[in-house]
Structures are given as C-alpha cells and as structure tokens.
Design a protein around this nucleic acid. Structure first.
Lengths: 359, 359
DNA sequence: GTGAAAGCGCTAACAT
DNA sequence: ATGTTAGCGCTTTCAC
C-alpha cells in the first residue's frame, strides 16, 4: 500500500541502505547526486517513513506523552498548547492522557504511556510531587509543569508567584494607592505564601506599612472574594484598592464593592491574578497578572527534549514570570492598557467567515 | 532493559508464541494452566508490550490522530475530552496536532499523522469540508466533528441546532413570554439558519405570530448582541424576552438591557446558546442551551472506531442534541434551575486541598 | 561511498 | 494445544 524504502531503492537502483541514509537524515556521507535523486524520487512517490519500524530499530519515537489532570481544567489546554508549539519545531508529537486526579488512573496512564513508543513524559498539574516507581525504574526522562506545587521539586516548571504579586502591588502603588487590601488563597499553599510575600515586600519596598487587617483569607472561590472584600470595606479606613490572589476572588470582590454601592475602579480599584478567560468578558474587564501557562509548557518541552537528547538528569525547578495585564478594574488610563491579541475564537471566525460556502 | 516476550518464555519454559497468544489477548486456545502461569510471570516481571513492534506486525496501533483547529478554542478541549473518554474504554490513545486554520499546517499535519502509527483521524473544527487527497488515498478512516459546517457532509458529527433553538424558545413561551426577540448570527451560516428555523417553528407551533422586526442580525460578538438588544428595546412594544444565537451576544444583550435601566430577568428575560464557561460566572448567570461538545466527541470516536474495525464507509452526518441549562437570566423559579456538577477546577482543588503537603 | 545482511519485538501462518 | 519460523520496515554494523 504505502511506499517504503524498498520501493525507492528499486526505482532509483540504489540499495535500501543508501536510501535510508539519505532519508533518515543521518550524517553518514552519501554522494550529492545520489542524495538528490533519492530525495526527488521519494518526494514523487510520496514517501513517508513508517515510524513504528523506525522506533523498533532506534528505540526513539519522536513522541512524548503528556499526562494531564483534565483537559477541561482552565489552565491545562494552554500548557499543552505551549508544549505542542515547542514540539512542533522539532518534529515531535504528543500523546495525551487524562488522569482526573485519580491515583489509579494516574498509575494506569503512566503504564500505558510507558508501553507506548514515547521518549519522555510531561506531567501537567499532576496531583503528586513525584512520579511513580514504575516511571523511575523505566529511566525515561520526565518533567513536571505545575502552578501549585507545595515545595520545589527537580525537573519542574512553575510560575514565579512572588514576582507576579509584586507586579500587581507595584502597579497599584504607582496608581497612587496607599492602602491596598489583599485577599489571599489558602494559607498553607506554597503559591499563596509566595504571593503574600510579593505583596508584603513590595509594600515595604515603598515604605508602606503592612497591616494584617488588610489581609483577608480566601479559598480561591468567588464567594470568599466577596466575603473578604466585604470585610475590607468595613474597615475604619477602607482600602482604596484590593488585590486578590486569583481572578474568581477578584470578581467576588467586584460584586461586593458594587453591592455596597461603590464603583470599580473609581471608589475601589481591583486587580486579580491568573488572567482567566472571563476576566476579559466581564464588565468591567479585570486587570490581572497572567499565569504564563503557554510559556511554561514551552519551557517544559524544551527541558524534556534536552533530557531526551542528553540523558536524564536532576535539574533545579525553573520559574517562569507572568505579566501584568492592565484592563479596566485598576483605574489606569486608557493609554496604559495592555494591547491584546484577538483570541483564537475570533481568528477562527475570521477564517470561516471568508470561506463559509454558499451551499 | 525492558522485559519482553522472550524473557517470559525463558522464565516459564514455554515458547514465545504461546506467551504471545496469552498476552496479546488473542482468542487462540491456550490451556488454562499455562495461561495462568504466563500471566503471573508477566505481572511479576512487569511486562509491557512494545507497541511499536506490535504495530509493525499488525499494522494496527490502537492510536488515532486528532487534528484540532486550536487547543485554545473554547469548544475544542471538551470535544477532545469526549473523544478521549471514549477511546479510554477501548485502550486507544490519541495524538493531537493543531492546525491553526492554516491550510499549509493542515496539510503538513495530515502527512505527519499519516506517517505515524495511527489507525484513523478525527478532524475537530476543521476549516474545510473535506479532508485532503492524501488522506483519501491513504484509505484511513476519518471523521469530522464540527459545530458550524456549511452543509451536511458524510462521516461527520454535528450539533442539532434546530432542536436547541426550539428548546430555548419553548422554555421562554412556557414562562409566559409572547413577544420574544431573536438575535441571530451571520445569516449565511447553516447553523444560524437552523437556529432561526427552530425559533420560528416553535413560535408557529404555539400559534404566536412571527415578526421580522423581532429578529436582529448579529455577528456572534458581544457588541452585536448589545446593538441588537438596543434595537429590540426601541420597538413600539418591546419584547419581554430575548433569545440570542450564542452566549456572547446574550451577554451583550444583558448589558444593553441593564444600561437601559431595566432588569434581567424581571423586565426582560434572556437566553443564550452554547453554554460557554463564562455563562456560569457572570451576574446574573445566563440560561442557555448547551453545545453538546463532550458528547459529540464521544460519538465521533465511536464512529471512527467502528470504521477502523469494520472498514471505511460513507455514513450520514450524525446530529447530537444539546440541553437547556436553566439559570438566572430567564426568570425561571429557583426550583426549576438545572442542577450542575462542580466543575473540574473545583474537583482539582478538592483533591489538592486534602493532600497539600506540610512542606 | 555503497551494498549486504542482521535484527529490533512482536504476531501469525504453518507444522506438529 | 504448543512450537518453529518468517517477516513487518527500518537502521546500522560490517564488508568491500
């Protein structure tokens, strides 16, 4: 059915080995004329290498496995996309498996991935801090990408939460705010401690006093942002700005401010964290710090491919910095707003609109 | 390194073929004692079949390719997830490639997928109505999943737009509305004509007159929903409800209604379409009709696997029905609201919260 | 610089 | 019911 090396060998009159040497891009010396002819015939016949056969020989497959928590999680697709974009440059493909945070499914998925022709594995938002014994024993390179690890681990890619919180706090201070409330996530999370430190250190850096009453606890959900903001508004001197450790809590805070009869950002400015999709859809559009998910995916892919090429090793955790996305809730001037790309949906429509058939 | 059939054969004393027959689940007869022993030893040694070798032999890989428009499109991850969930039951895995609506990338991706060991391909939100010649010639089974095809095509899975629009319209009529505005998407789209028909036919079915002034044009974006609603509110007798052909336009309509000093749903009820993520985040939460993306993915996977097993054939397009998701903008009673599952993010936190290490 | 031949791990046809 | 053997398409020694 499909054309193989043998066909090209027959057609050109050269041996299978020579053809292979040309077509597999080995740096084995082949005379220029032969190379040219082989490439030409291969193209004419539409040759595509049989990867299964190649893998069997080389034990390399140019395929990696990605074990994701759940493709429906908001941060997972962009991480995966970041990985794929990097892979794409190198001819690698990715096999994706969901774990649904179920330890059994995770183990099963790892086994599945290991039996497949994959050269390495990326764990996206994996619920453990280490891979399984099976993986360790297999000696396949593997790296972790996670937003919320409890502590630094080897070969992982994580966001720089401290830096992100500093960006947000600095921005509010630059806008003239002196009393800035902070709605935190669950205190025992590493992520939240890092963001809190970023907030505190930035205040200190600007010689602003830190008041513990300005820090409200939250649990990441909208309702806790609402409650936290309500507490902040009840303070004797209410803050003129609120920074929330994630976007849902920022949205909750906005609702609380509005329900109290105040305006965002005129009376109280709000900045969120993560750059969730809804932050550009709601009114007013939420100023936030981006979770650099696409970049994190890219860095993870790069790290993994390097280890595939050079062998497994233990590398220190890599921190990736997010960016401040200035929109409407912080009260910055229109000119200061961040220029944003049209999202993929818009692009999609733009393409389809033009080719929607008359049918 | 890894354990293979030969190792198990040596260990048990049986031949490689016998071991293979047991471990590959062929229905070839093997005595019960041998089977038991082989399985046991395989397990002890941690045997995992080398899929590359198996594929080379059988020309079957239990892997399919998924060519997606862009993993970052809002509808793509759930479609893919639906596919994967079905595959998971059958031991198939999926290789995912993005096309970014670029014809060159699409062709390249198809070639890549074909050279790989894949048994079939699913096109998700593909920008053409047919696959490439290359694919046709390859004779690999392939199916399409799309929300917006211009006309019915073979081996495709699509939403039942007519039915969805009927659900929304019926719901509003049941709530007592008699004048219902409709904000349409681009008229030349098959999808929009189907939704418009659903709306019109449902009105007719309830003996309500159809007024062309109640139908406003839109282009899927928030702004056009805003503009359309504004026109509707200016009517001599304004509608008491507005049905928008998608959620962003419904949101735009809500903003227009609010800006006109009216309340949603008390003064004007609103129903959207697609069940986009933000519809459960905004205030008030938007009543909508679900785009059955996960189901569509599942149906597509089922269709493809059947064709892989039984051979390619031309099957009629399959329509999948969405559901009415009753939330706050339609004005239905609280008891009537649709019960919703916690989303995956919440689930994720629930798991992580419990195992967040003390570190 | 080129060709012949071995073999990666597995399955299946054939032989017993 | 079990074993022997050929061969899937490719890469890579080895020989020339």
């Amino acid at each position: 059915m499909s054309v193989k090396l043998e066909d090209i060998a027959k057609e050109t009159g050269f041996s299978i080995s020579t053809v292979s040497r040309v077509l597999s891009n080995s740096n084995y010396p082949v005379s220029e004329q032969i190379r040219e002819k082989v490439v030409h015939v291969a193209e004419r016949l539409g040759y595509e290498p049989n990867i299964a056969a190649r893998s069997l020989r080389t034990d390399r497959t140019n395929t990696i496995g990605i074990l994701v928590d759940d493709l429906l999680s908001p941060f997972t697709p962009p991480i995966v996309r970041g990985i794929q974009d990097y892979l794409n440059k190198t001819g690698f493909l990715s096999l994706i498996v969901n774990s649904d945070w179920d330890p059994d499914q995770e183990q099963a998925a790892i086994k599945t991935l290991l039996s497949r022709p994959v050269d390495g594995i990326i764990f996206v938002e994996y619920s453990h801090q280490t891979a399984s014994d099976v993986l360790e024993r297999s000696n396949k390179p593997h790296v972790f990408v996670h937003r919320l690890f409890g502590s630094p681990i080897k070969n992982s890619v994580v966001p720089d939460d401290y830096h992100g919180a500093s960006l947000a706090t600095t921005h509010l201070i630059d806008l003239g705010h002196r009393r800035i409330g902070y709605i935190n996530g669950p205190e025992n999370w590493h992520t939240c401690r890092a963001r809190l430190s970023g907030y505190q250190d930035t205040l200190a850096g600007h010689h602003l006093p830190f008041e513990s009453s300005l820090v409200q606890p939250g649990d990441w959900e909208i309702e806790s942002g609402y409650a936290g903001a309500l507490n902040l508004l009840k303070l004797a001197v209410r803050p003129s700005a609120i920074f929330a450790a994630n976007d849902p809590m920022a949205l909750g805070a906005i609702y609380a401010i509005q329900d109290a009869g105040l305006r965002v950002p005129e009376d109280v400015a709000v900045v969120g964290y993560d750059n969730r999709n809804f932050t550009k859809t709601v009114r007013p559009r939420i100023t936030t710090v981006s979770m650099p998910v696409i970049e994190m995916g890219g860095v993870a892919a790069e790290l993994l491919l390097r280890q595939i090429a050079e062998g497994r090793k233990e590398e220190e955790e890599i921190k990736v910095k997010g960016q401040l996305i200035i929109r409407e809730t912080c009260g910055a001037s229109e000119e200061a707003r961040t220029q944003e790309e049209p999202d993929s949906r818009t692009l999609f429509r733009r393409v389809l609109f033009n080719k929607q058939p008359e049918d």
